[in-house]
Amino acid sequence: MSETFYALLPDRAVIRVSGPDRVSFLQGLVSNNIETISAEKSGYGALLTPQGKFLFDFFVYHQDEDSLLIECERGENGERAAELFKKLRMYKLRAKAELSDITDSYDVIAVFGKDALSALSLDATPGATAHMADGIKAVDPRLAEMGARVLLPKNALTEMAAIGAEESDIETYHQMRVSLGIPNGSEELEIEKSILLENGFEELGGVDFKKGCYMGQELTARTKYRGLVRKRLLPIKIDGPAPDAGTPIMNGDKEAGIIRSVHGDHGLAMIRLERVEGDAELSAGDAKITVSVPDWVQLPENAA
């Protein structure tokens, strides 16, 4: 039996960027190389403060020869998408690019499970993209094990049944996500505080160190080339009463990290690498915490 599931992601929004300057406009702002986005390749990146701290992360898709689509956080009442839209409009200046919020026109869907990519006829290459029923299907640009992201016009969910996908729910999707160590924007990243390389953006294809300048580039590059990464966002297993996000993780009387999110008995935490070496016994509240390092994570050589 095929193991292909899908979950609607109502917490996502879609912004269209069109016009002749759409690529050059975004290229000067986004951490990844927008010039590589095509009908066959989607991407992942972030918009940072001028000081290099996290503001927004998002996916970028090629819609047609004149338009790119940005799939981003919507926020509880649409505020995160509205803030990104406002920020992009502020930086647009005289660029020949038009912005429009088309969230109401699309369903954003996560397709996951061990057969998800084959059901969608996609190669297991992060970012691999093709059209689907006047929409877009793409292998998650961060990690192929995450499955695919699909943008479908409203009222086209019959396409999910057509590929044999079984309906799931957003919480099941997020449990899978945190078990793989993948952040979900401001749920785990602190706005105006988080640094990309502490949150896996290099390994997850969210930063291009060879492209030209973009806003916040200096801190990102300095963090990499000076080896300044001493903390990492990593998956945790929780044994006991689930602590709240924001609860410190302790190694004896020393703080070893802080929980960023909890989904079921798993979560993500920002971990101080030097505090979890060896057989560290970690706890948060009344729960025992076990930290794991996914295969895709590249820790500094002097870290555990």
Results as ranks from 00 to 15, higher is better:
Ala116Gln: 07
Val17Phe: 01
Ala124Phe: 06
Leu189His: 00
Ala128Gln: 12
Asp57Cys: 08
Gly227Ile: 14
Ser67Tyr: 01
Gly246Pro: 04
Asn251Met: 01
Glu190Lys: 13
Glu98Leu: 11
Thr247Asp: 02
Tyr44Cys: 04
Ser38Tyr: 13
Leu268Met: 07
Leu151Ser: 08
Gly52Cys: 12
Ala165Trp: 09
Gly257Trp: 05
Ser194Glu: 04
Gly28Asp: 10
Glu274Arg: 12
Thr247Gln: 01
Lys237Met: 01
Ala138Val: 13
Leu120Trp: 11
Leu282Val: 08
Pro294Glu: 02
Val150Gly: 05
Asn251Lys: 04
Arg80Glu: 15
Val23Glu: 11
Leu143Glu: 01
Glu3Asp: 14
Arg230Val: 12
His266Arg: 06
Asn33Lys: 10
Ile102Met: 11
Pro235Met: 00
His131Thr: 15
Met90Thr: 14
Lys231Asp: 02
Met160Phe: 08
Thr158Pro: 01
Arg142Ile: 02
Leu26Met: 15
Lys211His: 04
Ala280Cys: 03
Met132His: 03
Thr4Met: 05
Lys96Ile: 06
Gln63Tyr: 14
Pro243Tyr: 08
Ser2Val: 15
Gly43Asp: 09
Met1Asp: 14
Ala156Ser: 12
Phe112His: 08
Ala144His: 08
Arg177Ser: 05
Cys213Met: 11
His263Asp: 00
Ile163Gln: 07
Gly43Thr: 13
Lys254Pro: 07
Gly216Met: 10
Gly227Trp: 08
Gly252Leu: 04
Gly200Pro: 04
Met90Glu: 13
